[in-house]
Design a protein around this nucleic acid. Structure first.
Lengths: 342, 342
DNA sequence: CTGAAAGCGCTAACAC
DNA sequence: GTGTTAGCGCTTTCAG
């Protein structure tokens, strides 16, 4: 059994006593097998096993100065965009000595700050996905623990980034080729890096091609945000819509369908709309019609973030983090059913 | 700043030195203010603050024997059913001394076991949501840490449970009232407690009313599981379908719509289907038509689980857990647009 | 009300 | 190869 008769857990000394060696030898047998006689080691391991010995992590952490935990903070676990990110990070650390601790900020900056602070005391490193906190705050957190940023740049810590440009460029070119000349952008959270990026490349692409772009919102980046957006879009005189993300796009699609507005426009019939999303969440390919969207290589992003963190941790550099590498991962347009000629 | 010039963090002794007191006094000023002179305490607090002192959690854990972390393991964070559960638990522990560590098993039993084991070393308590591991395994984990189960019963630990019966009863009665006499149940994972519960009450309700129930599956409990299910349902001669959960139902709805099968049946036209889901995920109310489904009071369940855990932790009972309370929370049918007369 | 001392369980020099 | 010793940073008796 794993617990002694009195309910307390076996310590390294108990194992040592049972095996007739010192605590150091047990420690070595466990952590540096090559430093100990094969036979001794066998005996120690057997005794440890017999007592159900598990090293006390607090004691290890205290002496080693590391927890072997890494934290992962995302804005909203319910957002399908983050699911593959989370799973990617978890997958990377599975079968390593690290455990991944996940937390969700509910898209709230104050919660994010509190969580980052609580976590930073309990982990060796923290992966912050699309954090909304200020640069100053970020610096504070970075001074306490090793940080890797995903989808956010800062001088305070290295980042892994999605390169929005190719996808956005392709989206604008596609819509332009279909004849659209007046489009709407349904903005997401104003303080979000993703929103700024999307808007920026969209604006640039539209300007370059003589497309007039009207910005609506901000909307909450969820399905219901799209409902509200849909009605406001209809009040504008546009023929195509770029939504902040797929969830919003799906909400727009749903509401538009309910109001009888064809997506995309039916040739010859006025009043239809073309619709482009961002993220390529699983649901996007399953609607009627399936959503034209810009796909993000989220799993690759996750892997990059996890690998960067793992490397920084391994480096053992307790001082300043290594030179921030900023991996960029290209997005691309997936043309499906919600875009058509004007 | 929070770090000393040399990058190392301030210790309790540093604070003590600066304040001209002993480490014990600093500790007391922080943890038991009433035991220390008000003025001394003020000074200590000020010094602590000035040095950016943060107690080392590993050291605290070591001496206190507790981590002030609680773990939460769910089958799939991407499943919208679990999102409110997670948020409910997180909300409960926000502003407590505990941090919640979340992990996701990817619906995989082996991963679940590994995670539970890794977590149990790092937390004071573990909330297991709909665990799939064996009773034996559960007992092993329960011997290492305090456990609360959600949607699963076991002698090894207390549970909070949803009472599926009222919702299922209502669903069957509803479908029966609409004239359906031959229905299908699209089963979820065979080893899942939820699946067993649903099937059981469904079977009982149908039997009591003379409805013939054919069971199909198991299907993976996701949108895509519903695609496959839809085609298999069409090959059966049924008029109504109970899906394992909303995701599956949504997949069925999508596929049925694509194949031109009306949901619900159009009066007078043969071949339509009525459809009932379970969970009431957000998306369920947003489809066309909106999904008739059995709503689960998930947030209440989460609160109950968190409260139970918190109580057990507070009790400080390091030995055996208190008598397992098994809270039961009633489900209910939400009649929306996917059910209609035969 | 405060300080000195002991020790939580473990690892890492340093001897032998 | 293995044992001895000395802490890691904190809390908590026990004296005063």
């Amino acid at each position: 059994m794993s617990t002694a008769p009195d309910g307390s857990r076996a310590t390294i000394r108990a194992v040592a006593r049972l095996a007739g060696v010192s605590a150091s030898t047990v420690s070595r047998a466990l952590n540096a097998p090559e430093l100990v006689n094969a036979e001794t080691r066998r005996r120690v391991l057997e005794c440890a096993d017999r007592l159900g010995y598990q090293p006390n992590r607090a004691a290890q952490s205290l002496v080693l100065g590391r927890t072997r935990n890494v934290g992962l903070i995302v804005p909203d676990i319910a957002n399908p965009f983050y699911a593959p990110f989370i799973k990617g990070v978890e997958a990377h650390f599975r079968d390593t000595e690290y455990a991944v601790f996940l937390a969700d900020t509910d898209e709230d900056t104050a919660t994010e700050v509190r969580l980052a602070e609580a976590m930073s005391e309990r982990v060796d490193g923290l992966i912050l996905c699309a954090p909304r906190m200020s640069g100053t705050r970020l610096r504070t957190v970075a001074s306490k623990t090793t940080i890797v940023l995903a989808n956010r740049v800062s001088r305070a810590a290295p980042s892994v980034l999605l390169d929005f440009r190719p996808g956005m460029e392709q989206a604008v070119a596609h819509v332009h080729a279909l004849g659209h000349r007046r489009c709407a952008y349904l903005a997401g959270p104003a303080n979000s890096w993703s929103n700024r990026q999307r808007r920026r490349y969209l604006a640039a692409g539209c300007a370059a091609r003589g497309i007039e772009l009207v910005e609506l919102g901000p909307y909450e980046p969820r399905f219901t945000g799209g409902f509200r957006a849909a009605d406001e879009v209809l009040a504008q005189d546009v023929t195509a819509v770029f939504a902040y993300n797929d969830l919003v796009a799906l909400g727009v699609l749903s509401r538009l369908t309910a109001r009888g507005v064809p997506v995309p426009a039916r040739p010859g019939t006025p009043g239809g709309l073309s619709l482009v999303g961002f993220d390529d969440v699983p649901m996007a390919s399953m609607t009627h019609p399936p959503l034209t969207t810009v796909a993000m290589p989220v799993t690759a992003l996750a892997r990059a973030a996890a690998a960067a963190m793992h490397a920084m941790l391994a480096e053992g550099a307790p001082g300043a983090p290594p030179p921030p590498p900023a991996a960029e991962l290209a997005t691309r347009l997936l043309i499906r059913g919600t875009t058509g000629p004007i």
